[in-house]
């Protein structure tokens, strides 16, 4: 199969996809969503070149007027205008949600790999690793955030170098919490993948003179991390969703800001439905993205078709 290793062109990918109406709509919605987010963020960093900071990109009044003129849509015009008015807040909160998720995922990964390796190949360290993952996976994430925030009052002891990077220092506490928690879950997924790598692989590595650690690094991990991608995607999705718990320790991320607007305006229905849709869009993007990554790094004979 020469074709299997050749990267596919964009044209081929589009041709491959099912051209149903629903799919096209979904792709269009995704493009609109990310376009809006990126333009909003850029606008904010550049100090409001497109629209004043804190103002929607499109004036809510104009939207309401336009919709009111369309028969059948007039009834929802005020709600839509309200949502448009919310967009700067939503974009701002999403930024923090994305940053917290991304940072925690990456930091957690670098803790998870040694944890997983220790669990499989270590002796004493295997027990340490087991203890860590069991403890972190056995208690609620919210309780862990409470320990860091209320119990240890870490927000007050953020190092000077990190302080002030985010609107509130408590963001660092959230990142720490999600990193420590996510590391435990990621370690479980990676451990499963490491165990699925054939033992002969490490023997072959040792036979050409690699040390045990080198064999793990050059031979086992490159394979294991590819196996781990599908389950690791779950952790990515979980983290996006559970980053909302940062709101409980006053991190002004997406859920926190939306919840505040809802209680201030009493428009629970609109706000919470929009909030749900926002998270859904983030989650769907993440899983589609990881599917692409999985395809990209696929190696003939490794992964999915091997498991059966």
């Amino acid at each position: 199969m020469a074709g299997a290793t050749r990267p596919r062109t964009v044209g081929e990918r589009v041709a491959d996809t099912d051209p149903s109406v629903g799919r096209i709509l979904l792709v269009a919605a995704g493009a609109l969503f990310w376009g809006w987010l990126v333009v909003s963020w850029v606008n904010r960093w550049l100090g409001g070149v497109i629209a004043p900071v804190g103002e929607p990109l499109v004036a809510p009044d104009a939207v309401e007027g336009a919709l009111a003129a369309v028969p059948g849509l007039a009834a929802v015009a005020p709600d839509v205008a309200f949502v448009v008015g919310l967009t700067p807040t939503l974009a701002q909160g999403t930024w923090l949600t994305v940053v917290i998720t991304g940072a925690s995922l990456v930091c957690g990964f670098f803790i998870a790999v040694p944890l997983a390796v220790a669990r499989v190949y270590g002796r004493f360290s295997a027990w340490l690793s087991l203890g860590y993952t069991e403890l972190l996976r056995g208690t609620p994430l919210l309780a862990q955030l409470f320990v860091l925030y209320y119990g240890l009052n870490l927000a007050a002891s953020v190092p000077a170098a990190l302080s002030g990077v985010f609107p509130r220092d408590v963001v660092w506490v959230a990142i720490l919490g999600f990193t420590l928690n996510g590391a435990a879950y990621q370690a479980e997924y990676i451990r499963g993948a490491v165990e699925s790598v054939d033992e002969g692989q490490i023997t072959a590595g040792r036979a050409i003179g690699l040390s045990k650690l080198e064999s793990i690094y050059y031979v086992v991990l490159p394979q294991a991390l590819r196996y781990a991608i599908p389950s690791w995607t779950n952790e990515f999705v979980y983290l996006i969703k559970y980053s909302s718990l940062a709101g409980f320790i006053t991190v002004p991320e997406l859920y926190y800001l939306a919840n505040r607007v809802a209680t201030e305006t009493f428009r629970y229905t609109t706000v919470f439905l929009v909030l749900g849709a926002m998270y859904l869009a983030l989650v769907l993007t993440a899983s589609k993205f990881m599917e692409r990554v999985d395809d990209r790094v696929a190696i003939p004979g490794l992964g999915a078709d091997r498991e059966r």
Binding site: G200, G205, I208, P222
Partner: peptide, 13 residues
């Protein structure tokens, strides 16, 4: 050098 019955080629390379 060693050659194995089950080849043990590095599957990702």
């Amino acid at each position: 050098g060693m050659v194995f019955q089950s080849f043990n080629l590095f599957a990702h390379l």
